[in-house]
Structures are given as structure tokens and as C-alpha cells.
């Protein structure tokens, strides 16, 4: 499903990913763990083309996203990414946050996108927030809306970058439950996390990263 071959990435002269080779099977859940600054976020951003690689190749299914001919916007719409800080769009309602990309990128009809938003919000128990603005949500609610926003693009893969580290314990649980229910549905996921218990409970595989290299992968 996701294959990285000898991937190297730099910010200017700083080498952030060194010779990374990984294969992530369809439907599997990978937890990515490692010290701060080791390149975890960069790893995720490379997978959906937000950070360009210096060398090596990345495949999503059979499409090489590192090839010049690939339409990165399409790839990004198939690979959802959820950030630590939620990054909801503050000037748009929850509904607009969710329907914007399906309508603008995939050309979905507005009514269809709104129906989708309603059904996804129902799943995370936030339907009553549909007309609220992001600032009116708690952290846990905002992060679940951010997850729904990504899911509305009906991605093949979901990437999570420390989705719970900005949240207090109770809200953390809400968000982890949402991720777990996605896992049950067979979504392929890569989750950067510090929640070791969550990693052991949900992940099929735990990858340790250090200084831009993959140390080891444990089958869980």
C-alpha cells in the first residue's frame, strides 16, 4: 500500500530522513515512535508530498508519488493527514471545513458533501456542532472534526501526527476511540504517537525512528 525505497529528505542542508525503506501493507496500522526532532512529522509529510524527497522513491499503491508526472493534489486527496494542532480553518463552520475539499478538489456536489459530513459527524457524535465555528469546540472535538474533514475525502490512507499530544487525558480518549474505530473498518494508518499503550493496543507494527533512520520495526 505504502512503499518507501531509500528515501532521503532534507530541509536546506539538514538531513532529516536518511535512507528510509519501509513497506506498509494495506489495512495495517503502523505506530511511529521516536524522540523529538528525529523526523517523524517529516516522514508523514513526505508520504503525502507536503515535503519533497531528495532521493529515493515513494509509492502509494502502484503510483509513484515522487515521480515528476504525478498529480500531487490528487495523491494528497487520497492520503489524509491529521495534525497535532488540528489546523481547522477558523473562518469556516464545521460543515464548511468538512465539505470544502470534497467539493473543490473532487468536484463532489454540495448536497452530497453535506450528507457525507452529516453521516461522518454522526459517527463521531458531533452532529450538534455542524454549524459551529472551530473556536467554539473543545480540543478533543476539534481534533475529531479534523479527522472527519480528512475522512470526507474518502482517503485510502490516513496519517496522524501526534493527534492527541495537545489534548488532556479525557479528550485524548475520545480521539483514540475514533482512531480505533477507523482501524476496525480496515483503514490503512500511520500514527505518530507518544501513547505507548495505544500503540501496543492498536498497532500491527511499531516503528522506532532515531536521527532520521528507522531503528527497528516490531511486529506487534
Amino acid at each position: 500500500m505504502i512503499r518507501l525505497e531509500n528515501v532521503t529528505a532534507y530541509y536546506k542542508n539538514l538531513c532529516v530522513l536518511q535512507d528510509i525503506t519501509v513497506n506498509i501493507a494495506k489495512g495495517s496500522i503502523v505506530a511511529l515512535i521516536g524522540p523529538s526532532g528525529c523526523g517523524k512529522s517529516t516522514f508523514l509529510k513526505c508520504i503525502n508530498g507536503l515535503v519533497p524527497v531528495r532521493s529515493g522513491r515513494i509509492f502509494i499503491e502502484d503510483t509513484e508519488i515522487t515521480s515528476k508526472n504525478t498529480d500531487l493534489n490528487r495523491i494528497r486527496s487520497e492520503v489524509g493527514i491529521v495534525f497535532q494542532q488540528f489546523n481547522l480553518f477558523p473562518h469556516l463552520t464545521v460543515k464548511k471545513n468538512i465539505t470544502l475539499a470534497p467539493v473543490k478538489v473532487k468536484g463532489m456536489k454540495l448536497e452530497e458533501a453535506e450528507d457525507l459530513a452529516v453521516s461522518l459527524l454522526k459517527k463521531v457524535d458531533l452532529l450538534d456542532k455542524i454549524d459551529k465555528y472551530p473556536e467554539q469546540l473543545s480540543g478533543g472535538q476539534a481534533q475529531r472534526v479534523a479527522i472527519v474533514r480528512s475522512l470526507a475525502m474518502q482517503p485510502k490512507v490516513m496519517l496522524f501526527d501526534e493527534p492527541t499530544s495537545a489534548l488532556d487525558p479525557q479528550m485524548t480518549q475520545e480521539v483514540l476511540d475514533t482512531i480505533k474505530s477507523l482501524a476496525k473498518e480496515g483503514m490503512t494508518m500511520v500514527v505518530v504517537t507518544h501513547e505507548m499503550s495505544f500503540a501496543y493496543e492498536v498497532a500491527d507494527r511499531i516503528i522506532y525512528m532515531d536521527k532520521g533512520r528507522i531503528k527497528e520495526g516490531i511486529e506487534n
Binding site: K45, N48, L50, N73, R74, R76, S77, G80, I81, F83, Q85, N87, L88, F89, L100, A101, K104, V105, K106, R149, S150, M153
Partner: peptide
């Protein structure tokens, strides 16, 4: 981060 979230959803630069 707003930029990355938008690009991450597949919006192009102009959008």
C-alpha cells in the same frame, strides 16, 4: 500550518 492543512487536503496553491 493552515497552508499545510489546506494543501494536505489536496487544494492547489490558488485554492
Amino acid at each position: 500550518e493552515q497552508y499545510q492543512a489546506a494543501r494536505g487536503l489536496g487544494l492547489n496553491r490558488l485554492q
